[in-house]
Each structure stands twice: as C-alpha cells, then as structure tokens.
Design a protein around this nucleic acid. Structure first.
Lengths: 191, 191
DNA sequence: GTCTAAAACTAATGGGTATAGGATCAAGAT
DNA sequence: ATCTTGATCCTATACCCATTAGTTTTAGAC
C-alpha cells in the first residue's frame, strides 16, 4: 500500500490526536508509517504544509459533524446541536482541534470547508430573529464563545474552581440562547 | 550585568512578542543576550520552564492592565474596560498572549496572578445583578468569549468576511452587556 | 525482458535541546 | 596577600528534527 498525501496527513492527524500537535514531526510520522523521513517529502512540501493539511482535515471533519448535528433542527435545538458538535469534536480529536487554533496558510481559510462552517452557523441563526446586518456579529460571537470555552477547558483554566465545566457548559448554552432572543439593537444601553 | 532568571524570561517574552512564541528557542534567546546556549540552563530548567515563565509574566501583565482598566468603574463601563484591556494586551503583546493559550505547569494556573484575574472578573460582574451561584458561569462565559474572539481574530478567521473585526468587537460588548442584564434563570426557555 | 518514472533510500548539513565537565572570577576566610 | 569556594559562563558532545541532493529500487508500460 503506497503512501499518498492523504495517508500521510491522516497518520499525522492520528498522531496529533494521540500525543498532541507539538509531537507531530516529520520523523515521528515517518516512523509510524514504517518509512524513512525524507520519503515523506514526496507527498508533503514541508512541515508547515503537513500541519496545514491537518487543519484542513480537521475543518472538514468538524463541519461534517456539525452538519449532522443540526440537520432537521432549529432554534435552541440547533444551537445545542452545533455547540455539542464542537465540544465532542474537541474531545474526540484534540489534536485536530489544536490544529484549528493556528494561523494557517490561505488555502485553509479560504477552503470549502471553511465556507460551509460559516454557512452552517448562519443557518442555525436563521432560527432566531436577528436583523440582517446582525447575523455576522452573532456568528462571530457564537464562534468566539465556543472556541474560547473549549480552549480554556483544554488548558485547564476551569480546573481550579467549582463547579465542573460540564455545568457551565449547559449554562453557556442557556445564556447564548437567551442572548440570541434578546439581541440588542445597534444603540447600546445606558449604564 | 549578570543574567538572572527574570532577565532571561523577559528577553524571551520580548522575542515572543516580536517573532511569535514558536520562535522562542533557547538558542535564539541566548543569541539575543550575547551568551552561549548552555549558559541559560543556569537560570531556567529547560525549554518548557522558559515558556511557563513567559506565561506567568503574561498573566501578571494582563492582570495589571485589567486592574487599571476597571478601577473606579462598574457596570457597562467596567465591562468595556476589562474587554478593552484584554484586547489591547493581545495586540501589544501577541507573544505573551499566545503563551496564555498553552497548557502550562501547575504553578502558573495556581498563581496569585491567576487568582487576581478571576477576582477582577468577578468584581466586574458585581455591577450586574446575577444570582450568586451564577457568577462563576458568567465569569467563565466572559473569559471564553474574550479569549475566543481574540484567538479567531489572531488566526485570521475574520479576514474573509465583512465587516472588519472592530465593528463586531463593539457589538460583542453590547451583546455581553445585554446578556448580563438578562441572564437566564436556571430553567431553560422553551423552543 | 527492458525501459522509465515515481517513490523510496542513503548521506549530509544546519539548527535545536540538553548534559558533562572545565575555566574564570568575585568574595569571604585565613 | 593568598587560598578556597561557589556561581556563572564556557567548550565539547550526543541526540533529535527538517530539509536537500543524489542514488537505488521497483513496478507498470511496452
């Protein structure tokens, strides 16, 4: 079974999930594939390209999960679906998740998967009654919160206070649901 | 002027801010200090400890900024203060900011600076009328959102859609302010 | 069977982390 | 004044990783 770019990236992603993205080195991947390091250069340009490959794969996987999770749902159910998909992805594939917190090459950010992810988020927001110009902001807020929550959880920021993160996770969904129903008009409130 | 642990970490942090945390290597730091690499081992245990040192420094700096920014303010003003402090910190000291997105050694997470940061956030929430048990969740939500927003901004997730991030930033503050005033009770809303 | 192109290999360079052990130098003891 | 001692920086070395160059292997086309 010959090596292919896809196989190399897949093995790298598996390694990332097992040992963390830091330990994704070309030599470690080569070892896993039973091959000498330089052989990989036939399939990937360099180390950065390999990481970008993992990012793209991650984005694709994540988007697929989200698509599953929001299919046929709307409103709060859809919100729960998308948030749950993010979290389970970050749990199941921590290395890939890490790969999404990097600044990547332009091909990743401009990829179909990236566009789909935005579109899916946007679709979830359709279930809430937001002014047209506000959906972008809500999309960004949603993405930010999920992203930040999972990062803080991963780095252990919640480990030193009660209650356990799971509780806050539920409350976060509640809060976002409430917020999307009470989205502020452009004029901010007085103090 | 002899080297000290503090001086080494400070130089490493400066390098991180200039070139990114990835380029903080012991040899690069040694070069900058006009010293041979092994000399640094007198002052820092290893590479990981150096990074932890940057994280601690970052946390201290950030906390100091926040303390400044929320002093004498409450409610929305305090919210704007703390969020602004986060963002300006992430702008001015991108390398240190990056250092806060890593899983660190236990001394960092349990440090005084970490406790202060939580206390300051908690103080900001005092200006809003939350049920006592809910403040933890709100603290975590606030932290998550700020963190996530700045990460997404840094990795360029907002580069491929309009409007520019600054606009969404203001709307994010509006949204959080609204949310904190309309914080949901523990029973979630119906769909 | 032979040819050829892809894909793997060996060899080598340069930079990084880390340890071991030696030189230097300042400060206090004698 | 000199000796001792401990801290700090040094050289030397071993090993790992990324990357390139050049060679060999291999498998399918003919």
């Amino acid at each position: 079974m010959p090596l292919t770019p896809v196989a190399v990236v897949a093995e790298a992603a598996a390694l990332a999930d097992e040992k963390g993205l830091e330990s994704v080195t070309l030599s470690a991947v080569a070892r896993r594939l039973g091959v000498r390091t330089p052989s990989l250069y036939t399939h990937v340009r360099d180390h950065a390209a390999l990481l970008d490959g993992i990012s793209t794969l991650a984005l694709t996987d994540l988007t697929a999960r989200i698509a599953q999770a929001v299919a046929g749902r709307s409103g709060r159910e859809a919100l729960e679906g998308i948030m749950g998909a993010y979290r389970s992805f970050a749990r199941d594939a921590p290395g890939r998740w890490q790969a999404l917190q990097r600044r990547t090459g332009p091909d990743v950010a401009g990829s179909d998967a990236a566009r789909s992810l935005v579109a899916l988020t946007d679709a979830v927001l359709h279930g809430y009654d937001l002014p047209p110009g506000e959906r972008v902001h809500a999309t960004r807020l949603l993405g930010s919160t999920v992203n930040g929550y999972l990062t803080l959880e991963r780095v252990g920021s919640f480990d030193h206070s009660e209650p356990p993160p799971d509780v806050s996770w539920g409350r976060t969904i509640d809060a976002l649901d409430t917020l999307l129903r009470a989205w502020p008009a452009s004029a901010p409130k007085e103090n």
